[in-house]
Amino acid sequence: MTAKYKIIFFLPIALIIFLVLKMILPTPNLNDSYRDYCWVKKTHSTEQFNILAIGDSRIYKGVNPTYLLDVNSEFNAVNLGYSSAGYSKEYLSFVSKRIKEKGKRVILCGVTPYSFTPEALKNEHYSSFHDKNTTEVYKMLYLSGYLKSFPRYSPEEIWDYFTDALITHLYHNDFKENGWVESYKIPFDSTAGLRPYRINFIDNTADKNAEKEYLKWVKDISAEGIKIVGFRPPSTLAMEELEDSLSGFNYSNFINEFKQMGGIWLTFSLKDYKSYDGSHLHYESANKFTENLAQKIEKYIK
């Protein structure tokens, strides 16, 4: 075969091989191009919503906007949670820009003791996407989205699939455009998160000034007719006890002040949900939790 024909045929042959492999191979567990696209879209989109879910990873893994509204609802919702997010001025200002300017509006605030610690207030995860330059944002927003069809494959996953090997270790994270991350972990270990959290609170306890700033924001936003709904995202009893003992955060005082500022506080029973690591909800529990949350806020959006 001459070079001319090789130039003509190498792309079609590659396409055939690609399509055949795509049919045979299992769908990869993680699509990182799509993951980056979802985060950048969450951070840099200017779209406004009726319902926002804000907070840390317990929120972006625990509140699925799809379950917040009826299928035929005229409203829209998004999850604006970030890893280790804290209620800093910068983050709250970002949130304020994403709520609709009029109509029925609700901001769901996941409040954990970690939310007001100096480390959380740095909002490093949020900043890592917020601080990207225009070219990077443009690339991720408009080009990376197309890479959804081209995920990276892992030989290990393929091996497990074809050998029917029992999967002993897996961290599943499926990123959704609405900001939610469907997640679970194998093995299931509801104590796994305790040690890192114990370390997280060393020299890093809740900052009273940050609490005050946040409560002022609640007051200001509530005054605009926006319902601010606060709750402690469900985890495990052991985790709650650990956080309460180490964080320096007083929930009962906070809840009282939150209500005084016009906020609505909701409580949820821990026994209804399962956490795969002691901190984050298994995706089935996340859906169930969101349904319960939706029932409780129904009156504010009807």
């Binding site: 590659a14 091989i17 690609f18």
Partner: peptide, 14 residues
């Protein structure tokens, strides 16, 4: 021809 086509697929998938 086969190797280069396969390498191209590997670049995308792996």
């Amino acid at each position: 021809l086969l190797f280069i086509s396969t390498a191209l697929v590997a670049i995308v998938m792996f």
